[in-house]
Each structure stands twice: as structure tokens, then as C-alpha cells.
Simulated scan of single mutants.
Amino acid sequence: MSAGSGRVVVVTGGTRGIGLGLAREFLARGCRVVICGRTTGAVDKALAELGQGDRATGLATDVQDREAVQALWDHAVATFGRVDVWINNAGLSAPRGPLHTVPTGAVRDVVAVNLVGALNGSAVASQAMAAQSGGGWIWNMEGFGSRGEHQPGMAVYGASKRAVQYLTEALVKQTKDTEVKVGFLSPGIVATDLLVGDYTDDPDGFDKVKKVFNILGDRVETVTPWLADQVLAARKHGTRVAWLTKTKAMRRFMGAGFTKRDIFAPEAD
């Protein structure tokens, strides 16, 4: 029997990119899956792509609204009876550049989705899981800046993810000695519209970093099967599941001259 058989997994931001990839992999492992996105149209499109009938459902959810996130939990429980795994994956990026050039609205949106969204998801899931038999797992998605990385032009996104790191550490301590378990989920560099979108107004900048991305990065379909397996197999509270470790990064740089990769090409390996 699959490790995921019958388990109910909620993936916020599950209509595209890593979130959609995770939803697909959890379904392949026998889980029942709930996704959310910003619009009903996006949710319906993703569910059609997943094509799993009554094992997948979704709800348009504004993750920066606590009541909307609670409604997502309630929808999952009404459909499947409980939630075993909750993944705070929803995220936005900001245009790269000096802080003073990033529009106020973009700053507000990134913080609202990346940080407030994770806060809301963690609050709703931790309270509800503590009240249900067997508890459950909460996973917060790491990103650039989570562990103190710095790069020019990344102040807004990096700050939001650094704050999510603090949130997750605090939640680990808060839920210690309970049936609620918490983990850090780190997908590394993945070729998604979120990554490419950072360089919409800076094609020259993208050309400069593309070589590094092709060394260290991967495609959604490469990373998400491994992440799903690790999430379902996790047992230790406070664990960190990381795809791109320092050792793996070093090996890739050492072998870069012998291996040609293009993670942005439609048919790339």
C-alpha cells in the first residue's frame, strides 16, 4: 500500500508551478488532494489537468484573508473528513531591483501572500489539527532568503521568506509535545513562471544568471516526486526537507563542464 493512501493533503497555491506538481504527485501516491488558487477559473483549470475526479477538489482562496483560509480548511473537511498534511506553498515574487524601485503595491502583495498567507495557513491548520484525532503535519515552503541568502535586487522577496523561516521555527516550538508536527520544505531552484517572472523587465539580467540556474536548477517534474515522497515519509517534528543541498550544489558545479542542461527548454531532461 502506498505511503500516501487515503491521506488528505491541502496545497495552497496549487494551481500552477510547484504547487500543481506537488498535487499531481500526492494524487499519484494515493492521497486525496485539496488545492487553492486566487480565482475559481484557475482552480477549475488545475483540477481538469489533474483529472482525478472525486479524489481532488479545490476552492478559490485569498490566503491573506484568515476567514478565507478557514473556509478552505472547512471545505477540505466537508469533502474528505479531515486534513493530514497542510502545505503553505502560495507565493509571489517582486520585480528585481533596488528597494526604492519596487512599487509599493508589489511590496504589499508579496508580504501579504508569502508571509501573511503562511501565517494564516499555519494558524488555521495548527488549531484545527490539534483538535482532530491524530493531529497532522504543517509544511512551510522555503525560498531564496529563508536561510540568510543575499543577492542584489531581492530585498522584498528575501525578507518575506526570511520571515517565514522565523514563523516556522516559532511554530515548531509552539507545537512541541503535541500531535501537530511542523516541517520546512525547500524545493531549491525550480523553473517556474515565478522564477522567470522575476526577470520580466530585465532580460539581460536573466541571460546573466541563466547559466547558474541551469547548473543548480531543476524542472517541476524532477523535484516534486522527491518532495512528495519525503513529506509522506516524514516522522520527526521540525525536520527540513531540502532538494538542493550544499553537497549537491558543489557536485553540480564540479560537473558543469561535462553536463549540458537547459531547465527552461520544453523538452529538457
Rank of each mutant, 00 (worst) to 15 (best):
H75I: 01
A3N: 14
G143D: 15
G17Q: 02
A233T: 07
G153I: 03
L119T: 08
R96Y: 09
V77F: 04
R16Q: 15
L195E: 12
V180M: 11
V156H: 10
P225L: 02
V110W: 05
L232K: 05
V212L: 14
I263F: 07
E169M: 03
H237W: 01
Q64H: 07
N88V: 02
S93R: 04
V182R: 11
E67C: 01
T259L: 10
L20A: 09
S122T: 15
Q230S: 09
Q127T: 11
R32G: 01
S5G: 02
T61G: 08
A242I: 03
T222K: 06
A249S: 14
V10A: 09
K173I: 00
F213K: 02
R261K: 15
G134Q: 12
V223N: 06
R55Q: 14
P203Q: 07
F144L: 09
G97D: 12
G97Y: 12
L227I: 04
G51F: 00
A112G: 13
D202K: 14
R219A: 04
D62T: 11
E267W: 06
R32A: 03
M129G: 13
A130T: 10
D44L: 11
F213P: 06
G135H: 10
D218E: 14
M1I: 06
D177H: 13
T259K: 14
A123T: 14
K181N: 14
R162W: 13
P95Y: 09
V231I: 15
A42W: 02
T40I: 05
K176T: 13
V11G: 09
G257Y: 13
T259Q: 09
D262Q: 05
W137S: 09
Q127R: 12
K181C: 13
A76R: 03
L27Q: 11
L171G: 12
L27N: 10
D269S: 11
I215F: 04
G238D: 13
E221G: 02
K45G: 09
G145H: 09
A265G: 05
T61W: 01
T104E: 14
